[in-house]
Design a protein around this nucleic acid. Structure first.
Ligand SMILES: [Mn+2]
Ligand SMILES: [Mn+2]
Ligand SMILES: [Zn+2]
Ligand SMILES: [Zn+2]
Lengths: 143, 143
DNA sequence: AATTGAGGTTAGACGTAGTCTATTTCTTGG
DNA sequence: CCAAGAAATAGACTACGTCTAACCTCAATT
């Protein structure tokens, strides 16, 4: 993985671009997300970062993810009432959410379009638009 | 409110239509949602139902809301990681979410349209499509 | 080299939405 | 009235996320 776009050197640069001091824990957490390019929960990220030897506390995982979100290095996806997913892809895009597997998949922002958005309530501005397409396996036996 | 569409008699009928045995607590919870026509959290519903004298336990509030959702009498809206909202409006529609106030507002399903939804992953079917437009007051000082 | 202080990490207590369990109460039909 | 299933309940419990207070790291200052 020498010329991986998401090697640790590239990640250090990326953190700096976003005004984030690249500490060891921050690099590992960013690496977990960017090298996989998947949607992970805080839990999954903590597990990924602590596989070899326990390096990072729960507090740091949450501190770091919240910092990354605030600096817009990553994005939060809220689809499951029981946990937040973190998304290394900050391009405009949307999501399939597989209800059976609990897995998110990207829908390209160039494919899916919205039309007819009504004017906003007075004095309001848009922060973001999230489209979630909830899907399930056809042969799924529902409770 | 004699000829309210959402008086308790109409609600009893509605519960029966959806195969729900209309007990006292279920009627009160449905009434809280349908008479207001607002998006409420479990917490707010419990408060609404227990204003005069405490009639309904937390367990019953959650049992009942989950039953209503399963029978599709109401719908869940997942926009805030800290609580679920319950929506008495089950027509196809979407939502503005005011991040500052924590309040949901409906966007009519006839106004906002989606185009270019890619084909689903193999063997999957759509359960629902949620569009959340997150908005904030323009003069909002961000953290 | 010692001191300082800011930024970062940590363990573990804490808050809290939602679930579960064991028990009690209600309803309904015989 | 009785039996039995359905519903409601208190309160223990779980789990995600936050907070606090102590500790560590490191670079700037003396
Ligand atoms: Mn958050
Ligand atoms: Mn639920
Ligand atoms: Zn994504
Ligand atoms: Zn709605």
């Amino acid at each position: 993985m020498e010329n991986d776009l998401y090697n640790r050197n590239a990640i250090v640069d990326r953190l700096r671009e976003f005004g984030i001091n690249p500490t060891h824990q921050r690099i590992e957490i960013a690496y977990a997300l960017f090298s996989r390019q998947e949607h992970l929960s805080a839990d999954q990220i903590m597990a990924a970062v602590n596989t070899k030897h326990s390096e990072t506390s729960k507090a740091t995982v949450y501190n770091t993810l919240n910092l990354f979100v605030k600096r817009k290095l990553i994005r939060e996806v809220i689809v499951d009432p029981s946990k937040v997913f973190y998304d290394p892809n900050t391009h405009v895009h949307h999501h399939f959410y597989d209800l059976a597997a609990g897995v998110l998949t990207d829908i390209d922002g160039d494919e899916l379009h919205l039309t007819g958005l009504p004017k906003l309530p007075e004095g309001m501005a848009i922060e973001s638009i999230d489209v979630i397409v909830r899907i399930y396996p056809k042969q799924h036996l529902n409770s």
